[in-house]
């Protein structure tokens, strides 16, 4: 099961060694309707992170007022990122120096560990930052919500793009299936294809696909996808196909959004061409006669696609 963020406005962890600061910040957030918890040190904070799910963590840097040099907050920031990269981190401190700010906002693996850095005197801005952090999270959870929906006319899951998880080899058949699903969606009302998710909605991630590629990351994956489109559908069809990568928990999945095509799309198979249409939650091959009928009905006025139910 995946956690797709419950209905509550968002849950927030506040870490500061000073009780007054904690209660002030907690009260402020509470009054906005957030679910809040607090910790006074690194150990307690990590215990909570491991036991519960948080959307945002607000961290003080000096978690021991008696020690001028203490920077436990920065350490904690990295520890939280390791455990749950989806938690947005806000640093709040009374004693910021440039070095600290740089460490908190310096990108690691493409993204900064902290989303924002603010001084304790700017507590009013805190709510703005929290909202920003939660908005970020909500775009991410589009994929999460799709997974909860389960497969339907507009949504299909595939465990992988090219790596056959059962046989442990790169599979031509799988790649062809991806092309067929996309062709079916192009010829029907469009939809989304999620790769890295099994039929029953389990998030498997893309690591196996990545490892099978020369460039073992999202870039390499995207190139492989474009290659498949080029081979089976023609590269110009990419204008209606929009891949993006999203994090779900600790896994990456690829969401391919497919627009309805303004004209029929044929799939090249060896020396012949085939016509596929997505109907319900499956893709069907139509023979020549059925394809002709379908074309007449679906693309009225010759070739203009008449948008019907896509994009509800």
């Amino acid at each position: 099961m995946i956690d797709c963020h419950p209905k509550s406005k968002g849950s927030i962890l506040v870490v500061d060694d000073l009780p007054d600061v904690r209660t002030t910040v907690l009260g402020l957030l509470l009054d906005e309707g957030y679910k809040v918890r607090s910790a006074s040190n690194r150990a307690n904070a990590l215990e909570l992170i491991e036991a519960e799910r948080f959307d945002v963590a607000i961290l003080d840097i000096r978690l021991d007022e008696t020690d001028e040099e203490n920077q436990d907050g920065l350490l904690l920031m990295h520890e939280i990122r390791e455990r749950d990269p989806n938690i947005a981190i806000l640093i709040m401190t009374a004693y910021a120096d440039v070095k600290m700010v740089r460490e908190a906002l310096q990108p690691v693996n493409g993204s900064a560990p902290a989303l924002g850095f603010l001084e304790k005197t700017e507590i009013v801005d805190l709510l703005k930052y929290v909202e920003l952090a939660l908005n970020n999270r909500q775009t991410k959870s589009v994929v999460c919500n799709l997974i909860t929906q389960g497969e339907n006319e507009h949504l299909e899951f595939k465990s992988s793009l090219r790596w056959d998880l059962n046989l442990g080899v790169v599979s031509k058949v799988l790649q062809q299936e991806v092309a067929i699903t996309i062709a079916g969606m192009l010829n029907a009302n469009g939809g989304n294809l999620l790769i890295g998710v099994s039929d029953d909605g389990t998030v498997l991630g893309l690591e196996h696909d990545f490892q099978s590629l020369r460039k073992k990351n999202a870039d390499g994956f995207q190139l492989a996808l474009i290659d498949i489109i080029r081979n089976y559908l023609g590269v110009e069809k990419m204008t209606h196909i929009h891949p993006s990568f999203e994090d779900v928990g600790n896994q990456k999945v690829c969401m391919i959004s497919v627009e309805p095509s303004p004209e029929p799309v044929f799939l090249a198979m060896g020396n012949s061409y085939e016509f596929f249409v997505r109907v319900g939650n499956a893709t069907h091959r139509l023979d020549v006669r059925a394809a002709m009928d379908y074309r007449r009905m679906h693309w009225k006025n010759g070739g203009d696609y008449v948008q019907n139910s896509f994009g509800r």
């Binding site: 907690l26 009260g27 509470l30 009054d31």
Partner: peptide, 21 residues
């Protein structure tokens, strides 16, 4: 009064209760 809600609420969350205001 918002100040009282937030002060009392904050105090109670900080000692571990689940709180709504």
């Amino acid at each position: 009064l918002v100040d009282w809600r937030t002060t009392l609420g904050g105090l109670l969350v900080d000692v571990g209760y689940q709180v709504a205001v």
